[in-house]
Simulated assay, not measured.
Amino acid sequence: MDTARIQHLIDDGLAGLRLAEPAGLSVRLCAYVALLEKWNQTYNLTAVRVPEEMVPRHILDSLVLLPFLAAERVLDVGTGAGLPGLVLAMASPGQQFVLLDSAGKKTRFLEHAAARLELDNVVVVKARVEDHADPQGFGVVLSRAFSSVGDFLRLAGHLAQGGGRLLAMKGALPEAELQALPAGWRLWAVHKLAVPGLSGRRHLLEFCRKDAPT
């Protein structure tokens, strides 16, 4: 991997997102890309193989969510290789991120990466989301690659505390899915996302319980 080139791409992307960032963020993100490339050769963590492509398609596509995470505790459902949760944890050290996935090879990578990157605000959990319980609950429950909006709300909704939000990343708006939401849930907001280096449509869908305060 051309480390200097990857860090240059990350720096340009961070400038494009205009996010307040902690010191050393681009160095950590570059180290994460190196870890992901190395482990991907054996464990097939992501279909994106080229580090230069990982920057916009994984790193920046995760960081674009940062302004919408107004909660102390965030749960990333089906996090896979830590996307977006591990990337967001590097950018927001004051928040706690729980990264949940049912695949052992992915949670092993996450534990290794969190240790190597010295992230003390990350907890890795190997479990199916419908089986996971947390007494505190989460202010934000998010997913970047869940199958459908309906399944996400049905399976992960119990983990959002009283007024908590569920955030689902999508490409094009899934109109049919939005017409068939599970009982008790409503669409709170739709946010169009602009990711540096990506031309495709990206949307963030924000859901809350129907009885949640406005």
Rank of each mutant, 00 (worst) to 15 (best):
V48M: 15
A103D: 12
R144K: 15
E206D: 07
K38E: 15
A114G: 00
S143N: 03
C30P: 07
D120Q: 07
G164M: 10
A172S: 14
M169F: 11
E21P: 00
P84H: 01
S26I: 12
A103E: 14
D11M: 03
L66P: 01
G162D: 14
V87K: 13
P67Y: 01
G157A: 05
E111I: 03
L155C: 13
L167Y: 00
V123W: 07
L99D: 10
T214W: 14
R201H: 12
A176V: 13
L204A: 08
A168D: 00
L63T: 03
R108V: 00
D12S: 10
A103R: 14
S26R: 09
G16T: 03
G163D: 12
Q41N: 08
S92C: 09
L19I: 03
L117H: 03
A168N: 05
L99V: 05
G85C: 09
L29G: 04
E175F: 04
L75K: 14
A133F: 06
A70G: 05
A156Y: 12
A183P: 00
L117D: 01
L17N: 06
A20V: 08
Q161V: 09
A23R: 15
W39M: 12
K210F: 04
G197F: 14
L205D: 02
A115S: 05
D11F: 04
G150R: 00
I6S: 06
P135W: 01
V124M: 05
L19Y: 07
E118C: 01
K105H: 08
Y43C: 10
A176T: 13
L69P: 02
V27S: 14
K170H: 09
A168T: 01
T42H: 14
E206N: 00
L25S: 08
I10H: 09
R128L: 04
L36H: 08
G94V: 00
R186P: 01
K126M: 00
S199L: 13
R144G: 06
V98T: 15
R28D: 14
H8A: 14
L25Y: 10
Q7M: 14
L119D: 02
G171I: 14
H8W: 10
R116I: 02
D131Y: 06
L88N: 01
H112F: 05
L173T: 10
A189R: 12
A160T: 09
E53W: 11
A180G: 00
S62M: 11
A31S: 11
P93S: 08
M54Q: 15
R108T: 02
V74R: 03
L19N: 04
V124C: 04
V125Y: 03
P93C: 07
Q161S: 11
N44M: 05
T3M: 12
L86F: 06
F152H: 10
A31V: 10
Q7Y: 13
L63K: 04
F138E: 03
R57F: 14
H158Y: 10
G80H: 13
R201A: 15
G82I: 01
A113R: 03
G82D: 01
L159M: 09
W39D: 11
L35R: 09
N121H: 02
W188H: 15
V124Q: 01
R57T: 13
